[in-house]
Design a protein around this nucleic acid. Structure first.
Length: 304
DNA sequence: AACCTTGTCAACCGCGTTTTA
DNA sequence: GTAAAACGCGGTTGACAAGGT
């Protein structure tokens, strides 16, 4: 953490605009100013926010403070096991696209997830890579971690061949399961983000009505519904990933793989849903994701 | 008690992309 | 069409806390 810079320090230098900008930790007064301004006026141009709220901060700094700290919908505290698992799942899919991962974990920020990954998960993965994995270990996180660790660095293409659909989260509530070297990895479905509602059952591009031929019991609830009463279901969901082979067979028709590219038009209901000029696909860029799929960093926690 | 090491996390920086004038 | 401004993202830094020696 950085110490809040004293105003005196700033005043020592020339008085151009940049030197007037405060840096470092936010004081409670600044927080108050920003918070009350945002609650009164909502989000606008950030440099206007900074100016109008009477803050000697750049807009960028205000944006960051709001997003990472002041936003009322932020969840605080340690990550739950479910969240941890989801982060691992999504990281296996998306790599270091922290903002996209964060969009799927309500109340969490990209910065928070990034820090958590870099401090906790990465080290744990590193640790577990040192020790021989125990086949009897039962906790879901370690299973998943081991699953990821088994992917050997020379086999990304092999792994890719087993990924049914890296885009599945877009398609409403769906679950995909992949395997690499016979180690199951779940790709979790979209968890109810809202905002523009790209993923919600009523707003998603498939409106939740798409029939993917997937066992509905496999569908995970939105994260905010992952209360303790649902833990058993979540556990079950994770455990069922071990049946991935059958699952793969059942859903193989969903995505037609050809030369590492996926054709999504084979998804039942896709064509009708895909029409419309204003179609939004969340922050996903299908085309680039299709292209980028070969660069998914399945292995980026290795060899550091 | 003092020093060192490690972990955590808020905030900054630089860069690419998007929007606006 | 273009330049500038704003935005958003991922990587990195550095202060602080906690634990170890």
């Amino acid at each position: 953490m950085r110490k809040p810079e004293s105003s005196g320090k700033n005043n020592n230098n020339n008085m151009n605009n940049m030197s007037k900008m405060r840096k470092g930790l936010w004081s409670p007064e600044e927080d108050d100013k920003l918070m009350s301004y945002m609650l009164r006026n909502g989000q606008g141009c950030w440099s206007d926010v900074a100016r109008n709220a009477g803050l000697q901060r750049c807009g960028k700094s205000c944006r960051l403070r709001w997003i990472n700290y002041l936003r009322p919908d932020l969840k605080r505290g340690a990550f739950s096991t479910q969240e941890e698992d989801l982060i691992i799942h999504f990281h296996s899919l998306l790599g270091n696209r922290w903002s996209q991962i964060a969009a799927r974990l309500p109340g969490r920020t990209d910065n928070e997830i990034k820090n958590f990954w870099n401090s906790t998960i990465k080290k744990r993965l590193k640790k577990s890579s040192m020790s021989t994995p125990s086949p009897n270990a039962s906790d879901s996180s370690s299973d998943l971690i081991r699953g990821l660790m088994y992917m050997d660095s020379s086999s990304s293409s092999l792994a890719l061949n087993h990924v049914i659909d890296p885009l599945m989260p877009v398609f409403g509530s769906g679950l995909t399961v992949s395997s690499a070297h016979n180690v199951p990895t779940i790709f979790m479905p979209q968890i109810g983000m809202d905002g523009d509602g790209f993923y919600g059952s009523s707003h998603g591009i498939f409106g939740g009505d798409v029939n993917l031929g997937i066992d509905k019991d496999l569908f995970a609830p939105p994260l905010e519904n992952l209360s303790t009463e649902n833990n058993a279901k979540t556990e079950n969901l994770i455990n069922r990933s071990s049946n991935h082979t059958n699952f793969l067979n059942n859903t193989g028709s969903v995505i037609n793989h050809c030369n590492n590219s996926c054709k999504i038009e084979n998804i039942e209901g896709f064509e009708t849903c895909w029409q419309g000029e204003d179609l939004k696909v969340g922050e996903w860029d299908l085309e680039s994701l299709m292209r980028d799929v070969s660069s998914f960093p399945f292995l980026d926690f290795q060899g550091e």
